[in-house]
């Protein structure tokens, strides 16, 4: 089956006011198959959020495209005119579920009006009455009391419900790909579970075809993703199936990340999580050699000198020449 999303050697950089260039995404490639959920994991500052802007084809200063391509069903969206991206790509081909659902809804607009704006933005002649019918149907389907919720202002809804509403609006136009950027990290564990369940339902009902799920919580990806890409300093450092990455990571950063997670479950008190010391490198400076070397617990003398490339190790791809 042809990939629905192909990211090819994508490089994105920020230009600061002082003319400094920060290479936030540096050579990311992956493919997403129809029906697949790909997890992207990494600590803050690894380039996850910048990558999302690239995937959505929404490059606005100070963010610029250095090179590479993002193809959705064969169409290179980074080279389309912005008006075309707005009308036919955003919300239809690819939609995002943002991190801070609490602030993602216009506080002075009723949910109904906001959702109507989204539909009208893509279908100018849409019949008002048909839109209302569609909203009711969709909101009911995702388990909301449609009439009450649609007539509410965001401030009147609790956090968990607001996140549900955002998911409803993001998937109104049945997008082929959904990018979920930490959709549940601001919620308590129970609401988190409900949100994931809802995302699964949307996939199962065919409303959404594929998903990219971004989070800094690896244990969550165990249940969500089929494949996982681990990002560090703007690059993918390991990409493989969920089993491979979570239980048998071969890249030292992947292992360190997994080892730093509090296994949040009873009976695991004996296994002591170890925080990763230090901070990721400054991407505003040129870096040579392995980017993780200074923090790596198993670094070898040659690591800081040797630029790392993704290579196949034990059935997955790893960016570490010592991995085996």
């Amino acid at each position: 089956m042809p990939a629905i999303l192909e990211v090819e050697d994508l490089r994105l950089h920020y230009l600061t006011r002082l003319g400094k260039r920060v290479q936030a995404v540096d050579g990311v490639s992956f493919q997403l198959q129809p029906g697949e959920i790909l997890g992207i994991a990494g600590e803050s500052g690894c380039g996850k959020t910048t990558l999302v802007s690239g995937l959505m084809g929404l490059l606005m200063p100070p963010l610029h495209l250095s090179s590479g391509a993002v193809r959705i069903a064969g169409r290179d969206i980074l080279r389309l005119p912005p008006a075309e991206v707005r009308r036919s790509v955003l919300g239809r081909d690819i939609a995002m579920i943002p991190q801070g659902a609490l602030n993602s809804l216009n506080p002075t607009r009723k949910i109904r009006d906001l959702a109507t704006d989204v539909i009208l933005a893509h279908d100018e002649g849409a019949d008002r009455r048909a839109i209302q019918e569609r909203l009711r149907e969709r909101f009911t389907r995702i388990g909301l009391e449609a009439d009450a919720v649609l007539n509410a202002y965001p401030v009147q809804l609790p956090a968990g419900m607001k996140q549900r509403v955002v998911i409803g609006i993001s998937t109104l136009l049945n997008p082929r790909i959904v990018i979920a950027d930490e959709p549940s990290s601001a919620l308590d564990v129970s609401s988190q579970k409900a949100v994931i369940q809802l995302l699964f339902n949307l996939l199962d009902e065919g409303i959404v075809s594929s998903m990219v799920f971004i989070t800094h919580e690896l244990p969550l990806l165990r249940h969500v993703a089929g494949r996982i890409a681990v990002m560090y300093a703007g690059q993918i450092v390991e990409i493989g199936t969920t089993e491979q990455v979570i239980f048998d990571g071969r890249q030292p950063y992947t292992r360190a990340l997994m080892g730093s997670m509090l296994s949040a479950e009873p009976g695991q008190k004996s296994r002591k999580p170890v925080a990763i010391e230090g901070a990721p490198p400054n991407l505003g400076e040129p870096i040579s050699g392995c980017r993780f070397a200074v923090r790596c617990p198993v670094a070898q003398p040659d690591c800081p000198q040797r630029d790392q490339v993704l290579r196949e190790v034990a059935g997955r791809h790893v960016r570490c020449h010592h991995a085996h």
């Binding site: 919300g91 939609a95 216009n106 002075t108 704006d117 933005a121 893509h122």
Partner: peptide, 25 residues
């Protein structure tokens, strides 16, 4: 610069609509 403007942009909401949001708020 708020999240709701970014979200509206990412959902492909028309620029004129976003200006209206901004103006009112």
């Amino acid at each position: 610069g708020t999240d709701y403007v970014r979200y509206a942009k990412l959902m492909g909401v028309r620029e004129s609509t976003i200006v209206r949001y901004m103006f009112r708020n």
